[in-house]
Simulated assay, not measured.
Amino acid sequence: MAEVKLFGRWNSPFSQRVEMALKLKGVEYEFIDEDLRNKSPLLLKYNPIHKKVPVLLHNGKPIAESSVIIEYIDETWEGPSILPKDPYERAMARFWVKFIDEKCLTAMSEACSKTGEEKEKAIEEAAQLLKFLEEEIKGKKFFGGENIGLVDISSNFIGYWFGILQELMGLELLTKEKYPNLCEWIDGFINHSFVKDYLPPKDKITEVYKAWLNRRSNFA
């Protein structure tokens, strides 16, 4: 049997992306939970450039970056397709993942971490970016159509983590009134039988975010 290890963090949406892909394919693996404040020598060895999780180790060969890992998983193991088969649809899926990672997540994170005018600017930018996803998901069950695919997996922060953080901070950025299609997708995504069994417990994620908010307030 192929040796598969995943260096990740239990509360990382990026690690969770890879776990979802592995589980979707039915791949057995060992999860190595990293302390990101005290990174292991193995993590630094296998990802010397970014020094981040996740890192997939397959038969001793490391692959880094969640979107790259997911494509590798899809091409390596049999099972339900994660990326579309059609070349154009594959290209578009990659486009939306890049849009989510480089645009949406940055603006949404800054909406939570910045203060004053910078915060308001980030909220406005995030709101505009989310409108593109609102339009893209319109009339669809999932971004991948009838089944969960690459874009759905890559939107997991928007679908789960951000809702918890938004509630804690009292933000009203991603709401049903403003984004009915996107919120309908969120409800379907987090309650999907495949997804809900593997999401980190809400109470534990809440405690992580509370600790983060407390550290921020102490340095304010």
Rank of each mutant, 00 (worst) to 15 (best):
M108Q: 09
G163C: 07
G170V: 09
L36A: 12
A64D: 02
P54V: 03
F7I: 10
A21M: 01
E19Y: 04
K121D: 14
Y179R: 04
L133D: 03
G163K: 07
K178S: 12
L213E: 10
I205Q: 01
I73G: 00
S154G: 02
L133G: 05
W96F: 15
E30V: 11
I164L: 12
G163D: 10
D33L: 12
A2P: 11
E184S: 13
L22A: 02
S67A: 12
D197M: 05
L171H: 05
Y88V: 13
A21L: 01
L130S: 03
F189A: 01
I158F: 04
S67R: 05
E34I: 09
R94N: 09
E30N: 08
K114W: 09
S155N: 09
L105V: 12
S193A: 10
Y179F: 15
E3F: 03
F194W: 05
L130V: 08
C112A: 15
G149P: 00
S12D: 10
L83T: 02
L168Q: 11
L174H: 08
M1E: 15
I82A: 01
L44N: 09
R94L: 08
M108D: 06
K141H: 09
S217K: 12
G144F: 02
F219H: 12
E125P: 11
F157D: 01
S67M: 08
V208D: 02
I205Y: 03
F219E: 14
G149R: 00
F7T: 02
I70P: 00
A91V: 11
K141R: 12
G26P: 02
G170S: 10
T175L: 13
G8R: 09
C104T: 07
S40I: 15
I153M: 02
E110C: 13
S12I: 13
A126I: 10
N156S: 06
A126K: 08
P200C: 06
M20F: 09
S12M: 15
P62S: 06
A126Y: 08
V55Q: 03
N181H: 14
M108R: 03
R90D: 04
F95V: 09
K51F: 14
G8P: 10
N191L: 05
N11K: 11
F95D: 12
R90I: 03
E3N: 10
F162D: 03
I70A: 00
Q16V: 06
I164F: 05
I63Y: 01
E118W: 13
F95Q: 13
M1K: 14
L173Q: 08
N59D: 10
T106F: 11
S217C: 13
I123R: 11
W185N: 00
A21R: 01
K98F: 04
E71D: 06
A107D: 09
A91C: 15
R215C: 08
V4E: 01
D197S: 11
Y72W: 02
Q16P: 05
E167L: 11
G8C: 14
I164H: 06
K103G: 04
E134S: 11
I73P: 00
H58P: 02
G116Q: 05
W161H: 08
